[in-house]
Design a protein around this nucleic acid. Structure first.
Ligand code: SF4
Ligand code: SF4
Lengths: 167, 167
DNA sequence: CTAATCTGGATGTGTATTATCCAGAATATG
DNA sequence: CATATTCTGGATAATACACATCCAGATTAG
């Protein structure tokens, strides 16, 4: 019937967002290893680690090897936007794939970069910018504040689970 | 190195947008078969036809079988938004995949629908709405007007190519 | 020194996109 | 009516990529 249900970002974004949010509850100075972060939501440890590495490369987390090592936030939650996390996992590529088919059209020139010249590509890019702007305007601290307003038990629950996992 | 570059919509969106835009230049009453639409940009005819079928189901195009049959716009260009076309090809699913991992977290309940309860999912949905709003506010007629301002030759080029392909 | 932990590359697996083909239905034309 | 044209939609194949695992090597706490 219908052939497509595309345009989804990787599930790693969800993992990364939740993990970063949880890490805001860890007392600074303490690192959490991949194994504990994975157990938090019963995620596959080796694969979650790949995403954590991406977050480190993006400067959102910092990592420490060795015993009592692991990951911690590299910046204050106020300084980490949702866009930062999404971009770290998804990359910064545009959602609208332009194959420059205009080159095959009437008057098409192989030497022109239609990604900049094309009105359609411009409109799609404009819409995508609106999306990025929304995500850039919301920080982990904002999310945490809203969570605590709606679910006051969250801080205690999160800290208790971390305590149990770090035992 | 980096493991992911996701979050792309299908290339069919580009084909559909260009094809719909081109169809605004066909004198109403005349239909264009898949073969001609495919040759316009050297696209694979059988696969393009799948996307055209999706556009018909969405009420954007209408189709006529038989000789001198083919596709034409089902509504005026002013009444077709970019979002209409994107949704017809991509589906209306959300870009942020929520696996409800909170169910595995502390205090998680299997009977709660966290897609509505979760603050993160809400923030992502909010950003996506901004994207949709932008696309919904731009019609094929708007795009066409901008194209003609910047590239005055486009109407003639397009009509000539159609004439040659239908000849 | 030893155990714990991160890093990054190699590799496997499964799903979804991309693409083709064909039988059947509908229709314009003569 | 006969025929050629064209759309419809299911079946199927090829390909790309997200998802996932594993391991050797590097780093560090104790
Ligand atoms: S016209 Fe725009 S969307 Fe189409 S191929 Fe060119 S750049 Fe891409
Ligand atoms: S907390 Fe939100 S994003 Fe995370 S699993 Fe639940 S609904 Fe999805």
């Amino acid at each position: 019937m219908c052939i497509i249900q595309n345009m989804r970002m990787s599930q790693g974004v969800e993992w990364a967002l939740h993990t970063c949010l949880n890490l805001t509850y860890v007392e600074s100075g303490q690192a959490v290893p991949t194994a504990a972060l994975a157990k938090f939501y019963a995620l596959p440890p080796a694969y979650l680690n790949k995403h954590l590495q991406a977050l480190v490369r993006a400067g959102i987390l910092s990592s420490t090897p060795g015993p009592r090592g692991g990951f911690r936030l590299a910046r204050r939650p106020e300084a980490i936007s949702l866009l930062d996390v999404v971009t770290a996992i998804e990359g910064s590529g545009e959602a609208f794939p332009c194959d420059q088919i205009l080159r095959e059209g009437p008057g098409g020139r192989p030497d022109v970069d239609y990604r900049h010249a094309c009105v359609i590509a411009g409109a799609m890019r404009h819409a995508e910018l609106a999306w990025r702007r929304e995500l850039a305007g919301r920080s982990l601290a904002d999310i945490r504040a809203e969570v605590e307003t709606r679910y006051p038990d969250t801080p205690r629950n999160t800290r208790e689970r971390f305590a149990a996992l770090l035992g």
